[in-house]
Computed example of a mutant assay.
Amino acid sequence: MGDLTSWFKSLPIFTRHWLGLTIFFSLLGRFAFLSFKQLALMYEPVVHGFQIWRPFTSVFYYPLTPSTGFHFLINCYFLYSYSLRLETGQFGNYPADYFFLLVFNWMCCVIIGLIAELPLLMDPMVMSVLYIWCQFNKDVIVSFWFGSRFKAMYLPWVLLAFNMIILGGGVMELIGILVGHLYFFLMHTYPQEMGGPRLLSTPSIL
């Protein structure tokens, strides 16, 4: 436990809190201290009931069952791995910029979630961060299951195809890709590569 605590405390602040809150709320749901109906993103309770915690808990909570446990662990691994790489790599000296990235992606996921009636946002939020890391590191070789290796720029699309074929999903991954692409386009592609004005920037208060 001492080694585990030391490892957890060694994580950078945003990755540590994101991972910790995800495990915390998911375990609260698993042991019935809180329920899906109390934590999920739902239009009526948020807009008319002013239950403002739901946009936050819908990102951190994931229902743990025998059929979803493995997917949850994979999500936690991607969260830890790619959030850590971004926070200590591209944003290593710019914590405010990384915090704004998380806030922007979260707000986009919440808006889409309310419109599309998506109760849980862990999948698209994690995928959006993974997509941004892949855009910053397009030519880095990554490994996937069964020993397959390819450039990082293809990883989000491989995960999308995998979930569509194996799990019959893919919508949440596609939303995450779109949210991540929107951030990367507004912050980097349009102003730096296309010569356009900067349409998105980190608020000075951060």
Rank of each mutant, 00 (worst) to 15 (best):
L4R: 13
T5W: 08
L11D: 10
T15A: 09
H17K: 08
S26L: 12
L28Q: 15
L28Y: 13
L28E: 12
F31C: 06
A32N: 15
S35L: 05
K37R: 13
Q38E: 15
L39G: 02
I52Q: 00
I52M: 01
W53K: 02
R54D: 10
P55C: 00
S67Y: 01
T68A: 13
I74S: 10
F78D: 02
Y80A: 05
S83P: 00
L86G: 04
P95I: 14
L101R: 06
F104E: 00
N105R: 01
W106T: 15
M107C: 06
A116W: 15
E117D: 15
E117T: 12
L118D: 11
P119C: 04
P119K: 09
L120T: 11
L121T: 07
L121P: 08
M122Q: 14
M122K: 10
P124Y: 10
V129L: 09
W133R: 10
V140I: 15
V140Y: 03
I141R: 13
W145D: 02
R149D: 04
K151Q: 09
A152N: 02
Y154S: 03
P156M: 06
M164L: 13
G168P: 08
G170W: 07
G170N: 12
V171H: 01
I175L: 14
L182G: 00
F185I: 01
M187R: 08
H188M: 02
T189I: 15
Q192N: 13
P197R: 13
L199G: 09
L199M: 15
T202G: 03
S204K: 07
L206N: 02
